[in-house]
Design a protein around this nucleic acid. Structure first.
Lengths: 349, 349
DNA sequence: AACATGAATGACAGCGCTGTCATTACTTGA
DNA sequence: TCAAGTAATGACAGCGCTGTCATTCATGTT
């Protein structure tokens, strides 16, 4: 097995530059550059010949040189707390789809739910002179916020809808969505709904607040039906948190879960206990992953628009880049309660 | 709401460069550069003063300038067919974790299971002079392969274990893993195992081959118990493919699914039909997502080491970068059959 | 005929850093 | 004592591109 060494020059010899294309066409480098970036500034005849030369020579622009010369990279930085969490995976999918064939690329930073990591990544990202920044949430440190305000590029906060955006914002109210879910449980006739939450980050905390608010407005005492942990969410965790909940508060007849993984785990746990899902015990998740509708019985959840959020965030960056005078926008994508068998007290009767 | 315009210079005025640091310390830029990149080449006293200056001035290197001058970026390109699929999300998680605090960053390209998109992305990535490339699978077009061979950087193929690697390779044999799963079904006493597969990409095809091989070796005719579709996998699809399977081949008493989403959907579908999981109908998935063990009943699956694959791939790139003469490696991460209730014929008896 | 206008193109410097080679100040062994 | 080595630092050019300003030339205007 022969080994190529990764020494410099190995592949630089045959790198095709703007100058090569220009020489091939018999024009200047700057014209080639313009033919690619602002075709309307170059006569059609020349443009065509340049396009051909680019094709035959296989010219690919050097993004580093572009970034250095223009003082702007074509990288759109994305800061999210987790890449595994399917919620963020969906957002990413929307981002990647929209960035698709544009000249931009997205670069993802994983903050791991840590504000200081987020701050550090923000510093590094801004050091790259990004074309835009998309950050999850509104709970940045004040340093991070200050940097984002002076970033000199569009900044989009996603996953939340709240006051005081840094620039643009696209999301929904976690509190309202959670309250709607809890109100649904109450409306269905459950008398003692509980809350199960994992990874109690600020977003989860807001959901808990929504849950509390709904109970309070319905004059239902919360008792000790709030079970939370800082551990990351897993399906398996749902069942064990259910055990804890029913031990501490045996009166519980329904549960609103922080997210769908937990809800699915709660359902498995309830089935193992022999509880009749829906009739005896109501379950509501959050996000409405695809599995919720497919489960047996199907599980109620609050649908959130994650792919749409990613697509819209990316599109907003592109729009701002097109028109730098564009005003910041604040968009509420809302939510939708998907009522299913798991909160239907007639089911299985 | 006052709008900042994203005009150039907006934030460039206060950009701190190597020259600023050098002036502050009273040395040359090249020495500052060395103090950062190869500290052992600079005397300890100077190094310390430079470090302080970097801190107080808040110097952040410009990756574009670094890449342009050194003819190497610090970007590690990753080409995967999907970002939503939790299999690849796990791989990504391993990559991000390992790249962590290194000076490198990963940039993900989404090929959407399309070889031509993959080819185009490869061209773009190589144009960035990446530090390394990590590509999923072995089914690249010949153009893509040719480009990868001349990439001038480490290239790691992941998710597969096969002959003829481009450079290094880290994965496992999908055929062997699928065969092991099928053999397990047979050993458990199921007489007519079927196959359910979605998104029949090359990897899925290899799994199907493993399934066939196991049946053949056990002298079990396949009949019409192979149900496949090119549609992307979803939990909901599992149940409908199960319907098709049982309609076409009512004798089917077990099923090996292409992946865990389908297996979960099959289980829900089987429950809806009133089948006793395990005793009457065996189910085996592929990948062993966390939900499989948590499901009720727990579902048998073939565990694959996706995070590990991501971590090892990234580490292999770093190792190659450290020592450019390092020989390519080919690693089989294997698989592990996780036998659970869903393939236990005694369960629920 | 003289001049303004705008479209198309080009010259040139320089973005911020690093590879390369040179220089300086110290050792060290014979 | 001195050639020869070594550690520490610096000078300089240039990576590939784009912003800026200059130039050319056809066209229209008075």
């Amino acid at each position: 097995m022969k080994r190529k060494l990764f020494e410099r020059g190995g592949q630089d010899k045959d790198r095709v530059t703007l100058a090569d294309v220009a020489a091939h066409v018999g024009t200047s480098t700057i014209t080639v550059s313009r033919a690619i970036r602002r075709p309307e500034m170059v006569s059609e005849a020349l443009r065509k010949r340049i396009a051909e030369a680019v094709d035959t020579l296989g010219y690919v622009p050097d993004p580093a040189a572009q970034a250095l010369a223009s003082r702007r990279s074509r990288v759109i930085g994305v800061l999210i707390p987790s890449v595994t969490n399917s919620v963020f995976a969906d957002v990413l999918s929307g981002l990647y789809d929209t960035v698709g064939k544009t000249a931009y690329s997205v670069q993802v930073g994983n903050t791991r739910y840590d504000p200081l990591t987020e701050e550090e990544l923000t510093r590094v990202f801004i050091g790259q002179r990004p074309a835009g920044l998309i950050v999850a949430g509104i709970d940045q440190t004040s340093n991070t916020k200050a940097m984002l305000e002076r970033a000199g590029c569009p900044v989009i906060q996603i996953m939340e809808f709240a006051d005081g955006p840094i620039d643009s914002m696209i999301g929904f109210s976690h509190r309202d969505a959670a309250r709607a879910a809890t109100e649904h449980l109450i409306a269905q006739g459950y008398k003692a709904p509980g809350f199960i939450g994992a990874r109690m980050d600020p977003r989860s905390q807001r959901r808990l607040n929504g849950f509390r608010q709904a109970l309070q407005e319905a004059d239902i005492p919360i008792g000790c039906r709030e079970i939370t942990t800082v551990d990351p969410s897993r399906v398996g965790l749902g069942a064990s948190l259910l055990d804890t909940l029913l031990e501490r508060a045996p009166e519980t007849d329904a549960v609103f879960c922080n997210n769908d993984d937990l809800a699915l785990g709660v359902q498995f746990g309830a089935q193992r206990r022999g509880l009749k899902i829906g009739a005896e015990f109501g379950i509501c998740g959050f996000n409405d992953l695809e599995v919720m509708a497919a489960a047996y019985p199907a599980i109620t959840s609050v649908r959130t628009f994650r792919r749409e959020m990613g697509m819209l965030a990316l599109q907003t960056v592109l729009d701002n880049l097109d028109d730098p005078e564009k005003q910041p926008t604040v968009t509420d994508l809302g939510y939708e309660l998907m009522a299913r068998a798991s909160t239907d007290r007639q089911t299985g009767r």
